[in-house]
Simulated scan of single mutants.
Amino acid sequence: MLKEASNPVKSTVRTFEVLEGLKELNGARVTELATHLDLPKSNVHNYLSTLRQEEYVVKDGDEYRIGLRFFELGAYARNRMKIHNIARPEIDELAAETGELTNLLVEEHGRGSYLYRARGEQAVRVAAHVGTRVPLHSTGLGKAILAHLPEEYVEEIIAYHGLPRSTSETITEPNELYEELERTRERGYAIDNEERLRGLRCVAAPILSNEDRVLGAVSIAGPTNRLQGDLFEEELPERLLETVNVIELNVTYS
């Protein structure tokens, strides 16, 4: 469940604020980052110097940027997840067969995190990459997961993160979202109709354990002008559900 620390360490919180600031600015000089964070230059310099010492930040001339040591930690976190290792070859095959963009997403701290994605021959290129975190309510992947989380946890996610709008099609009302999640459970998969990115559609299905615990979700995504009619309503969902079935069996019996 979503919980805040009862006694957070202020210096640790500040360290992550500095890192988030570097990310938002795509690298920055001390003065620029201090202005962005509204902090004294001397404090920001001390944080950056310490992070550089520990090899989490790189200095290039006068500019600091996030270093690749975070990539090592992220890769470790991802590779120790059974669902990633089992789903990866199936997602590759799904992309090759459909020619589209295929994705694996898991829920953590009430948000969705992209664990893996594969590109077919005609796959579109979108801004999100492996490691990107997104709101659950505005993606097909996220809705597929939300539909199988305990209702009280879904309510907690909405209360904690809200339902921010990404496009004019994003669901931003709780009752409307609950209705959409019910439809998702009934059909067995979720639909994203330009709810996170204009011009992009996707179908997404949950990966469930033997105990019906949701482990993640898989999607097929493509441009709206291509994902239409029987392809979008029947062919892709059928192929997606076949893939998810294989993943679920491999998770259960491997």
Score class of each variant (00 low, 15 high):
Ala127Ile: 13
Leu146Met: 15
Ile220Tyr: 02
Gly216Arg: 06
His161Ala: 01
Glu179Cys: 02
Pro223Phe: 00
Val154Ile: 14
Gln122Asn: 13
Arg117Thr: 06
Ile158Cys: 10
Thr170His: 00
Gly222Pro: 02
Ile145Gly: 02
Asn193Ile: 03
Pro223Glu: 00
Gly140Gln: 12
Arg185Ile: 06
Ala147Met: 07
Thr172Phe: 03
Thr132Ala: 15
Arg183Tyr: 12
Gly131Thr: 13
Ile207Gly: 06
Ile220Arg: 04
Asn103Val: 14
Arg119His: 15
Glu180Arg: 15
Pro150Met: 09
Ser209Trp: 09
Ala96Val: 06
Glu235Arg: 14
Val203Arg: 15
Ile207Tyr: 05
Leu105Gln: 11
Ala123His: 08
His137Gln: 14
Glu173Thr: 09
Glu195Thr: 00
Arg201Cys: 04
Arg213Thr: 13
Thr167Arg: 06
Ala190Thr: 03
Gly216Met: 07
Leu177Arg: 09
Ser168Val: 11
Glu233Met: 11
Gly99Thr: 10
Val154Ala: 10
Leu101Gln: 05
Asn175Ala: 10
Thr170Arg: 00
Asn193Ala: 07
Pro174Lys: 11
Leu105Glu: 12
Arg183Ser: 13
Gly229Pro: 12
Ile158Trp: 08
Glu195Ser: 00
Arg183His: 12
Asn193Arg: 14
Gly112Pro: 08
Gly199Cys: 03
Leu94Asn: 05
Arg165Ala: 01
Leu101Phe: 08
Glu235Tyr: 12
Tyr160Asn: 04
Tyr189Phe: 15
Glu194Arg: 06
